[in-house]
Design a protein around this nucleic acid. Structure first.
Length: 279
DNA sequence: CTCAGTGTTCAGTG
DNA sequence: TCACTGAACACTGA
């Protein structure tokens, strides 16, 4: 379920287990789709023995900066995640949902890494829209080189953001999802931003006033920082957010304030919005 | 059985 | 070339 905050959670998890450690062993699933342009055997040989200097993220892309290249890049697609072995061996009363149990490595594991010091990390990817790649210079090559600024670590000034947004002719929802405009916004964050900024998702960037465009910048930054601050834990997001009410296209869905939520399809994506606030 | 889906990419169009 | 649109990808879970 990865948008920027969830990918950042993955980065922190990987960082805690991998940074400063050497990769001792690698096991890849036999899945050429997930390996994109990399042969799984080469991949294992490339990584074993390398030291992980830093786990980096930009937008929804993650990569390990190793002591020498090529460096592995990870993209979670719609369903990917990093996992580490469960710490608590105590049996819980309730039975875990499928794929979330204590099984190790977990179901749908595409790569399993062992580090010096005993840590392990697995990347799962049930629907196989994720990608694992190798790059000599990650930031200089696609997909990273095509990304716009990451709103957590390199958010432009409101003035700069507003200028860029007002230069766009496309509808706001699509512009926010464009990873070359800002990196890391996905479907629910785009809807949340437009709800809190009180803007119709079908408005065109070029139609915004300076004040409206700056509001988008401010709200986007605030939402991202808040979601990252709670480590993307959904139940910790403010009750007033559209997030909690937007799922399932429920025709009777209401916001926490009792406003009616409606659904549109914009750029092929389901868009939840609140006409009485955003019209 | 059918279908939506927290994402990206690419061919096609204007 | 830019900007945008829609389809394709893949497969689980509802």
């Amino acid at each position: 379920m990865p948008e920027l905050p969830e990918v950042e959670r993955g980065r922190r998890l990987a960082s805690s287990v991998a940074e400063g450690r050497r990769i001792r062993r690698v096991e890849c699933a036999d899945d050429p789709i997930v390996y994109d342009d990399v042969d799984p055997g080469d991949f294992e040989a490339t990584l074993v023995g390398r030291r992980v200097e830093e786990v980096c993220r930009r937008g929804k892309q993650l990569w390990f900066r190793l002591d020498r290249g090529p460096h592995p890049l990870f993209h979670f697609g719609m369903t990917g995640a990093f996992r580490i072995p469960d710490v608590a061996p105590l049996k819980l009363a309730s039975s875990p949902r499928r794929g979330e149990g204590p099984e190790w490595p977990p179901r749908f594991t595409k790569i399993h890494l062992w580090f010096s010091g005993g840590g392990e990390l697995a990347m799962t990817n049930a629907r196989r829209l994720g990608r694992i790649r190798l790059r000599e210079e990650p930031l200089a090559e696609p997909p990273l080189s095509k990304l716009g600024p990451d709103p957590l670590i390199e958010m432009p000034s409101p003035a700069t953001f507003a200028e860029r947004l007002r230069a766009r002719k496309g509808v706001l929802k699509s512009v926010l999802l464009d990873q070359s405009f800002v990196a890391g916004v996905g479907n629910w964050i785009a809807d949340e931003v437009l709800y809190q900024a009180k803007l119709d998702p079908r408005r065109r960037g070029s139609s915004l006033s300076e004040v409206e465009a700056r509001t988008v910048a401010r709200v986007l930054s605030r939402i991202i920082r808040r979601a990252v601050a709670v480590d993307a834990e959904k139940t910790m997001l403010p009750r007033t957010w559209l997030f909690h009410r937007r799922w399932g296209k429920d025709p009777d869905a209401l916001t926490a304030k009792g406003e009616r939520i409606e659904f549109l399809e914009i750029g092929g994506r389901t868009t939840a919005w609140v006409p009485e606030v955003q019209a």
